[in-house]
């Protein structure tokens, strides 16, 4: 399934679901405008609405339950992680990325960490990015060559956020900072080459 020209991604699914929700709200508003001139006595009008509300309530409760059960079983957190094929340390600092294909010692000086803002990684391998920051909060966000955001995690001083991702397509990926980190925040970019 695709949205005319857009492939099915999390973004297009979210947009489609939100569009349907919006259309539902708009329909209710239009209906209320159109029917408001047909007067109905208060108690019978309210009784009708309340009957509808009861059905809505059950439908909503069921939907929430189903979506919670399905969506909470596929989270990007460490508890759901597998053994990675390789580890990449990512140190964010104002306003550059330092990446290196190695684990980092807990007491290593992050400012002196010798990573680069460009890295080459293998396709179809599970990569674990261990992401931290040497100064303020940043956000390590990976975009594919079509400009779609495919994975992200915060880069926080004093903490390591471990992000696992398997690149299934070769090509060029761009890293953007998705947490405001000071003036040149929009220029804090890096490259990942997948071969």
């Amino acid at each position: 399934m695709s949205l005319v020209i857009l492939p099915l991604t999390i973004q297009t699914t979210a947009a489609l679901v939100s569009l349907l929700g919006t259309l539902l709200v708009v329909s209710v508003v239009v209906y209320l405008f159109k029917t408001s001139s047909d007067y109905e006595e208060k108690s019978s009008a309210k009784a009708k609405v309340y009957r509808m509300r009861d059905r809505y309530f059950l439908g909503l409760a069921l939907t929430i339950l189903i979506v919670l059960i399905t969506s909470l079983s596929m989270l990007p957190y460490p508890k759901f992680h597998k053994n990675p094929d390789s580890v990449v340390t990512v140190v964010a600092m104002q306003w550059l990325w330092k990446m290196a294909p190695e684990a980092i010692a807990a007491d290593q000086d992050l400012v002196a960490f010798a990573g680069k803002n460009e890295i080459t990684l293998p396709v179809d391998k599970l990569i674990e990015f261990r992401v931290t920051s040497a100064d303020v909060n940043h956000n390590f966000a990976i975009y594919n060559s079509k400009g779609t955001l495919i994975a992200q995690t915060q880069a926080m001083p004093k903490y390591y956020n471990n992000l696992q991702y398997k690149f299934t397509e070769k090509g060029e990926y761009e890293v953007l900072c998705l947490e405001y980190c000071g003036m040149p925040h929009a220029y804090m970019v890096a490259k990942i080459h997948i071969e």
Binding site: T9, T13, A14, G21, T22, M74, N139, L149, I150, Q152
Partner: peptide, 25 residues
């Protein structure tokens, strides 16, 4: 209605599995 529309889009984004693609966009 605006509350409902904005709220709906918020609930969509409050799904962790969706948020990882929409957070800070």
């Amino acid at each position: 209605a605006g509350w409902a529309i904005g709220g709906f889009a918020a609930v969509v984004d409050s799904t962790i599995a969706v948020n990882r693609a929409l957070h800070n966009t």
